[in-house]
Simulated scan of single mutants.
Amino acid sequence: MKYIILFFIALVTTSTFAQNTIFENLEQHGDSITYLEYGAIRKDNKGKLYAHLNPGRQPEEVQIKIRRHENIPCGIEILSVSEDGEQSVKYWQDMTKQTYIDLINYPFTSIAFHNGYYEGYVAIGNYVFFIKDFKSKTEFGEISRVYVLKGTTPEGEEPAKKKKKKKFGKFLSKVKDVALNTKSEVDYTKAPEYKALMSQDNKKMITDYLVAMKAKQAAHTTTAKEEADLEIVKAEGKKYAEYIKTKNDAYWQSPEGQKTLRVWKLRDQHKASCPKTAESCDSSYH
């Protein structure tokens, strides 16, 4: 059985280098702010870094929100937004709805631990990174997805303010509208958000943040209120784990569950005794 390690890494505002938790950062931006989702940061055949998107695609617009239990931040969710404004959860991590999970370094949450492989979110300024293959609290392998606050420019952290439109002739206005609405012809690498993302050493920025946050976590003495909040979240996670176990036990003890177990047992016996390989044996037990 695979388990998931979820890292919820706090962020640093790049202009002031102050470390904030991922929850504080999202609170500063608010629930209605739009992010642009890019794929993994990779190198092309010339060694140049780029953020991956499938050919002909544009970065999806999403919103990132905090999940809470009794007003205590306990996770995040990333929501797709349809053209008519409907929202649907695309990704979520909730410390009260995933078994064998724990908060580490609360309230300066840098890791939400779940046994198995290592992955999680790092938030820095206007950027949220989804990272895989953590080696430790400060070392990691791949930047698998990136979310950039819509309107971010290379020159500053704040989203660019929309300039007042100048009046154009009808012909020029129509040409402009066609160009803006023809997504397949728009080069996303020319967008200010993409330029802002690629104008910096993202891996170094993340590593520097993790190192600084680790030091901040080590220097903090947890208060009684923080310990109580942590216990509330842990208790809810434990309650959910018990609920899942009860449901699973009820299934395996039911006639349907017992039938499934018998089939699995017969398959294991067949594999142990069959002289043929899975490719050559015509039995469904392979």
Rank of each mutant, 00 (worst) to 15 (best):
Ile22Ser: 01
Asn71Leu: 08
Ala123Lys: 02
Phe108Cys: 01
Leu26Thr: 10
Pro159Met: 13
Lys97Cys: 13
Gly120Val: 02
Lys43Phe: 11
Phe140Leu: 02
Ile101Asn: 10
Ala112Thr: 09
Gly156Ser: 10
Tyr50Ile: 11
Phe23Ser: 13
Lys97Ser: 09
Thr99Tyr: 13
Ala18Trp: 05
Glu70Thr: 07
Ile101Glu: 12
Leu103Ser: 05
His29Asn: 07
Thr21Tyr: 04
Met95Ile: 05
Lys43Val: 11
Phe129Thr: 02
Thr99Ser: 15
Asp31Thr: 04
Asn115Trp: 00
Asn25Arg: 06
Phe108Trp: 14
Gly30Met: 03
Ala51His: 03
Ala160Asn: 00
Thr138Trp: 04
Phe130Arg: 15
Arg68Lys: 13
Phe17Ala: 14
Ile131Met: 01
Cys74His: 07
Thr109Gly: 01
Gly75Met: 09
Tyr121Val: 03
Leu26Glu: 03
Gln93Ala: 10
Ile143Met: 08
Asn25Phe: 05
Lys137Ala: 07
Tyr35Arg: 01
Ser88Val: 10
Phe134Lys: 08
Lys165Asn: 05
Val62Cys: 09
Val146Asp: 00
Ala123Arg: 01
His52Asn: 11
Glu157Ala: 04
Asp133Leu: 10
Asp84Trp: 08
Glu77Cys: 10
Val122Asp: 09
Tyr147Gly: 04
Gly151Thr: 08
Gln58Leu: 15
Met95Glu: 03
Ile124Asp: 06
Gln63Pro: 01
Arg68Asn: 08
Leu36Met: 09
Tyr38Met: 05
Leu149Glu: 11
Leu49Thr: 07
Thr96Gly: 07
Tyr127Val: 10
Val62Gly: 02
